[in-house]
Write a protein that binds this DNA or RNA. Structure first.
Length: 577
RNA sequence: GCGCUUGUAGCCCAGUUGGAUAGAGCGUUUGGCUACGAACCAAAAGGUCGGGGGUUCGAAUCCCUCCAAGCGCACCA
């Protein structure tokens, strides 16, 4: 990366200067922090390193330090100037040509860092109850989680994606009871969900169970009356509804380009004995005590603000008990790192799960929880509060309304700790207000140019055909036997565009390390903007054949980079729109 | 009351571990197609970085305090 390159040049120069005893009181063991950035004013240069931070240690004025460093710098392929405490680098076109050569050579692998430490990561996200359709909030975790998985894989990590199914609690009974009512309704029975608000909380009154009830009756032809319905064990309804809901959820996730390697059932976890096992382990480590008939986990000894019940007075487990077992199980499966995406409404859970990990002798820092703020829906400029099942807009509805690409992009483009206002009207619009189309348009435009370069042109007035500016084999040759010198022809006008292409590598590294997806969105928009700007002032297909080749190579590089970035976001890169 | 997150241009958001004149987009105003897709580009206007203290050569960024918004604070899942 060019950033790292210049940073290293400066670091080496500093070491040299220290060795020659020219950096005041600075010794080789003194630590320092250097920043490399893009100068706000392009006249200064292409990259800048601020050495002011050395002033305190060296006891020298920043400009003096900068000049001393510059004396020890090689200045090969670039020029240097000093302004105040800044060392400004102006790169020569050969470096730009190298950047394009790298993209063309690496293709779909362009942007993958080399020589970075990688881990075996288990990424858990969505993890919804199988009691109903996804709402738009789940959509945010699904889009973000899958994009993060793509990003981390691209970075080089080994990523395993998991969905924890909360299928063991009382909510499944609620689901079964609700289905029972729907089945009776299908049989013509005059019955409805309780109107009393408290009673009603024991049911899922959403109408999504109506088709499930129909299907249930198709599969159970023997059921003909309310008596028949009651004669069947509740368990049957629970299992049936659960299976249906899970199937719906899985289908939707696949459509939404979200792929889990495993759906981990909480029920299976209980049945495997692992929950009981970790309970006993906590017990044997004296991490539990009895109070008011319940068993408590001493989580406050590990940073939680209070102790937590782990076995209720009635002998049943709490949700936390299973969650502890689940996380221990993940660690035992041999992952270097566990990353969870949780809604901000679960933030209170982080401390207690980490406490349990530590109590059982594992490193709590292996668990990283990304807390995501919730999603508000905006319809006609009005914020619609989510939650409480009223006004619930399902993810299905949203996707149908605005499409997969736009839905994904809008879910991905915001920092996870910002509350997301999802404006349906805006996301649907294919105008300047919608960044998805802006980016996709850039891609389609690049593809269009590459198509035109090898198509014969029809003059609409004369009806005459003129031959294609380039042949397909010439384009192939351009890519396969790429000649760096070619790019020099266009380097001057395309400088900021090429630098933006080169930046992709740093964007990947930073985004992966910070676990941010929105930074990829920002990058892709910036790159699109650079391209559009270049497009408006430079013709790619032109009479000067070498210049045309040079710019076509640039187009290939843009196409490659945009595609690689969009693939991470799992947003489609259309060749035409 | 306690905890987590947020507060930056009319709107929506960036701002890397403290560093050059606080930046994009939308909206507004003005300009640009008989040339590769105008779903585009160029330019201008627009700021007390929620308020107030502090730390230092330097703060949107770190510390304290106050204000406002969202979300939590279960022997529910």
């Amino acid at each position: 990366m060019l950033k790292d390159f210049f940073l290293n040049e400066v670091k080496n120069a500093i070491s040299k200067a220290i060795a020659d005893n020219k950096l005041g009181q600075m010794g080789e063991n003194d630590s320092y922090n250097l920043m490399i950035e893009k100068p706000k004013n392009p006249d200064f240069g292409d990259f800048a390193v601020n050495v002011s931070s050395l002033a305190r240690v060296a006891k020298m004025a920043p400009p003096m330090i900068a000049n001393t460093i510059v004396e020890n710098i090689s200045k090969e392929n670039y020029s240097v100037s000093v302004v105040g405490g800044f060392i400004n680098f102006k790169i020569e076109n050969s470096l730009l040509a190298n950047a394009i050569a790298e993209i063309i050579e690496k293709g779909e692998n362009y942007g993958k860092p080399e020589g970075v430490a990688t881990e075996k990561i288990l990424l858990e996200y969505v993890s919804a109850n199988p009691t109903g359709p996804f709402h738009i909030g789940h959509g945010r975790w699904a889009a973000m989680g899958s994009a993060l998985a793509n990003l981390l894989k691209f970075y080089g990590h080994e990523v395993y994606q998991e969905f924890y199914i909360n299928d063991a609690g009382s909510q499944i009974q609620k689901l079964g009871n609700s289905l029972k009512i729907r089945v009776k309704q299908e049989l013509g029975e005059n019955i409805d969900f309780p109107t009393d608000e408290i009673e009603r909380k024991n049911y899922y009154p959403g109408d999504y169970l109506i088709p499930v009830a129909k299907k249930f009756l198709e599969n159970h032809k023997e059921v003909k009356s309310a008596q028949d319905v009651d004669a069947i064990d509740l368990r049957v309804y629970c299992d049936f509804a659960k299976a249906e809901m899970e199937a719906c959820q899985k289908a939707l996730l696949e459509d939404f380009r979200v792929h889990f390697d495993r759906f981990y059932s909480e029920l299976d976890l209980h049945n495997s004995g692992k929950v009981e096992e970790s309970y006993k382990e906590l017990m044997s480590k004296s991490m539990l005590y009895e109070q008011d008939g319940a068993m408590w986990f001493k989580s406050s000894e590990f940073g939680d603000d209070q102790d937590r019940v782990i076995k209720k007075a009635d002998g049943s487990n709490t949700y936390l008990t299973a969650d502890i077992a689940y996380h221990i199980d993940k660690l035992r499966r041999g992952y270097d790192r566990l990353i969870n995406i949780w809604g901000a409404d679960h933030h209170g859970y982080v401390a207690r799960v980490k406490a349990s990990i530590e109590a059982l002798g594992y490193d709590p820092n292996k668990l990283e929880v990304l807390l995501g703020q919730l999603v508000n829906l905006v319809i006609n400029g009005e914020e619609v509060r989510m939650g409480k099942r009223k006004n619930m807009v399902t993810l299905d509805d949203l996707i149908e309304e605005v499409g997969i690409d736009a839905t994904r992009y809008w879910m991905e483009m915001r920092n996870i700790d910002m509350t997301l206002d999802f404006d349906i009207e805006l996301a649907k619009r294919s105008t300047d207000e919608n960044p998805v189309f802006y980016v996709q348009y850039a891609y389609a435009r690049v593809c269009s140019i590459l198509r035109n370069a090898i198509s014969e042109k029809l003059n609409p007035e004369t009806g005459e055909k003129s031959p294609a500016p380039m042949s397909e084999s010439e384009i192939d040759d351009l890519i396969k036997n790429f000649n760096k010198n070619l790019i020099l022809k266009t380097a001057d006008t395309a400088k900021s565009l090429i630098l933006k292409l080169e930046e992709f590598k740093s964007v990947i590294v930073l985004s992966a390390q910070n676990r941010t997806v929105y930074t990829i969105c920002r990058y892709v928009q910036e790159l699109a903007a650079e391209f559009h700007s270049f497009y408006n002032s430079n013709r790619v297909i032109c009479d000067d054949k070498d210049l045309m080749k040079s710019r076509l190579a640039l187009m290939v590089a843009i196409k490659t980079t945009l595609k690689n970035a969009l693939d991470i976001l799992a947003v489609s890169a259309p060749e035409r729109m």
